[in-house]
Amino acid sequence: MLENLGEDKSIYIQISEMIEDEILRDILKEEEKVPSTTELSKFYKINPATAAKGINLLVDRDILYKKRGIGMFVQDGAKERIRESRRNSFYETYVKKIIGEAELIGISKEELKKMIDTEK
């Protein structure tokens, strides 16, 4: 959660991805409270509205939910939902890139498969 914000993506997306990563890594468990918008904005020195936008992105996707007057909590089954959506984008974000780079430097599909097979 404490990594630096980069410039390669909108800040609110980075905030939401950071929370997702925490959930995937079991640092944030289901039904656990996540940092508040104010805490996030103070830590990263970002506008609270931006932090809220990142949080709301996760609320819309049923990953977080709001307990009135208490704060945001990790929804039941959030981890599985994140895994699913990341699986769906895995091809676009990672595989395509690897294949493109492999083509550029002349690694054949066979060689690539072999690399994956030998990697444990």
Binding site: T37, T38, S41, K42, K45, I46, N47, P48
Partner: peptide
């Protein structure tokens, strides 16, 4: 840094 933090605290 102090200033940015103060602004956010006050704004929040």
């Amino acid at each position: 840094e102090q200033f940015y933090k103060l602004i956010i605290e006050e704004y929040a």
